[in-house]
């Protein structure tokens, strides 16, 4: 098996904080792998180590078969990075941004122009070619950052929260493009705290919290393993109802004025509840990654 990334007991300590705490994972060639976790879980820190811009404190990390400690320029030449914060060059147009970026990789001018043209088309930005960065919308900037990350024809594309703050149209366009890149064989590493995004794109993912990996797996498996396939939500249960709900063979959780019951057979559970409490306000739905995420990381606010 060709591993694109291999991390073993990877650790990053800052002065007063262990940001990444001995995580191990492997990402295979051609895979779309997700890092999920609340703010401060250590996702971006892990990515910065993979990118060779933040030194590893301890543990082992190889990217495309090379150790991040020694062969940083070689590794970086093969990565495409879309950072969390847009860092396009505001002094240039969209087109010039791509050409200047290509120069950092030592790509020849004619080749760079050809790729820039293709990538603007791919990201549906051709008509914005000569627009300066401050005049682009958030979604256009994000698409341009992804186009820029593809200028060096990377073996591994790293997307750090690629759709945060975007409208649904822009998010779906980006998802479509990521899927297309996957078909071309690009390995993708994505961080997100949108569970629908992870479910849409990732074949395998880890959920992180406080620098550690809580679970790793295929989204559908993770859901059935940790919460079952269905969810029953009971709105504003009375005290009596609540006491009854707590005692079942299903997993019970309470948040705000809502009780969440996790079970594989949510239809028959709803019927049982309605037989017992005909006035109950009950909703059933399929379990999602969000349920897994909230169950594992809790419902408390992070920051």
């Amino acid at each position: 098996m060709d591993w694109v990334i291999e991390a073993e007991a990877l650790t990053k300590k800052f002065e007063d904080l262990v940001a990444v705490d001995g995580i191990s994972f492997r990402i295979a060639q051609g895979e779309c792998f997700g890092f999920l976790g609340p703010n401060g879980a250590g996702k971006t820190t892990a990515i910065r180590m993979i990118q060779c811009v933040s030194p590893v404190t301890s543990g082992k990390l190889t990217v495309l078969g090379m150790d991040v400690g020694g062969r940083q320029r070689e590794i970086k030449a093969l990565l495409g990075v879309c950072p969390q914060e847009d860092n396009l060059d505001p002094d240039f147009t969209a087109w010039k941004n791509l050409l200047v970026y290509a120069r950092y990789f030592g790509i020849r001018r004619e080749e760079a122009e050809k790729r820039a043209k293709d990538l603007l088309e791919f990201m549906q930005l051709t008509e914005k070619k000569d627009v300066e960065i401050p005049k682009l919308s958030g979604g256009m900037k994000r698409r341009l950052v992804i186009a820029r990350a593809l200028m060096n024809d990377p073996k591994l594309l790293i997307l750090d929260e690629p759709t945060t703050g975007l409208d649904p149209q822009a998010r779906h366009l980006i998802w479509d493009k990521v899927r297309e890149l996957r078909k071309r064989g690009v390995t993708v590493l994505i961080t997100t705290h949108y569970m629908d995004e992870a479910q849409q794109l990732c074949e395998r993912l880890v959920i992180m919290e406080k620098g550690r990996i809580l679970v790793e797996g295929v989204p559908a498996d993770l859901i059935s393993r940790s919460v079952g396939s269905g969810v029953v939500e009971v709105l504003s249960p009375t005290d009596g109802m609540d006491a009854w709900l707590r005692k079942g063979e299903w997993i019970y959780e309470k948040a705000g004025d809502r009780a969440y019951l996790y079970t594989d057979d949510n239809r028959s559970l709803r019927e049982r509840i309605l037989r017992e409490f005909p006035a109950a306000n009950v909703i059933i739905r399929d379990a999602t990654l969000e349920d897994v995420f909230l169950k594992l990381t809790g419902r408390g606010l992070r920051d």
Binding site: Q51, V53, Q72, R73, E74, K76, A77, L79, V81, P83, E85, N87, L88, D89, P90, D91, Y101, Y104, F105, G106, N152
Partner: peptide, 14 residues
């Protein structure tokens, strides 16, 4: 402000 350095060090430059 412009994060230009961050963008550049993501390429083969140190």
């Amino acid at each position: 402000y412009q994060k230009t350095f961050d963008a550049i060090v993501a390429t083969p430059l140190t």
